[in-house]
């Protein structure tokens, strides 16, 4: 049964990632795929603080969020002038460059990562406790995204996506809006990273590579980009379904690749059968 809780926590973390990323790419219209690096920054900051200082978890996670936000503002301010596909590639360069650094620095544990993250909650209910916290945080993020995008800020964001020049000519500062969206979305990735580090107690650079970018992007796009519940559903389906085979008692060397196969097959299937997302909007990227 602990296994179910573990899968639940993972789903919750991915929901946070997908919801935050959806804000950036679906509402903000910013084509970056560097989301996992902010996930990584949150996870590594939290883990390093937890290992090195023993500060309370809340503070460690807050620091993780902070680092993710700072890094995202740096990326946003330097690259938001870059248009379209090139922004995507630039963000990829940023992600892989930072990942290389994490991979080669000593204090991050290099390729083998950090495995001595202290236990914070213990006892038989640990899994369920984490599940509840993660679920609550996921709901909070969804709620905030929903509130943000249905209010006046969200209206300006939609206007920007429809016609950025007209929106700016009405007095809306697009650059600031984009940076704020980016920072918020990446901050939630930092939060997800903090939760991940505390729960799984092990992080390594390969968990945050291009494959992870593709995973989160896929959850958002296949779930329904620019909708509130689409990414949530996408994260749920794409994490939960591959988990099913863990019940088959297969050797562990098979489980990883098999899960990967299920995941990628699902993506390809959805891509061709449900091109407008599970929560189907006609035009991808439109909120209505």
């Amino acid at each position: 049964m602990d296994y179910l809780a573990s899968a639940g926590v993972l789903i919750g973390i991915y929901i946070i990632l997908a919801a935050g990323y959806n804000l950036i790419i679906g509402y903000g219209g910013l084509n970056t795929i560097a989301h996992p690096i902010f996930f990584a920054l949150g996870a590594y900051t939290t883990a390093l603080l937890a290992i090195g200082t023993g500060l309370p978890p809340v503070i460690c996670i807050a620091a993780g969020i902070g680092v993710a936000v700072i890094a995202s503002v740096f990326l946003a301010v330097t690259t938001l002038r870059i248009s379209g596909d090139y922004l995507l590639i630039a963000s990829l360069g940023f992600q892989l460059g930072l990942l290389q650094a994490i991979n080669n620095l000593d204090f991050t544990g290099g390729p083998s990562g950090l495995s001595n993250i202290p236990v914070t909650l213990s006892g038989p209910a640990r899994g369920w406790l984490y599940l509840m916290i993660t679920a609550a945080l996921a709901l909070l993020v969804i709620w905030l995204v929903h509130r943000g995008m249905s209010g006046p800020f969200g209206r300006a964001v939609r206007a920007m996506r429809d016609d950025d020049v007209a929106c700016a000519a009405l007095g809306r500062g697009l650059f600031t809006m984009k940076v704020v969206i980016f920072a918020f979305g990446c901050g939630t990735a930092g939060l997800a990273g903090g939760m991940y580090a505390y729960y799984f107690q092990y992080i390594s650079p390969e968990q945050f590579n291009v494959a992870q970018s593709a995973t989160i992007l896929t959850m958002v796009v296949l779930g329904g980009i620019g909708t509130i519940w689409g990414p949530v559903l996408g994260a749920f389906v794409l994490v939960a379904l591959p988990q099913v085979i863990t019940f088959l008692q297969l050797p562990s060397s098979l489980v990883g690749p098999l899960q990967g196969l299920i995941f990628t097959s699902l993506v390809i299937l959805f891509l061709f059968l449900r091109p407008h997302g599970l929560v189907g909007t006609r035009t991808p990227g439109a909120a209505h």
């Binding site: 390809i268 891509l271 991808p284």
Partner: peptide
């Protein structure tokens, strides 16, 4: 959209890698 092509081509490569 470009994103869809990006997802498809990348996921295809991952599919092959897992296989």
């Amino acid at each position: 959209s470009g994103l869809i092509f990006f997802i498809f081509t990348l996921i295809f490569s991952q599919f092959v890698a897992f296989l």
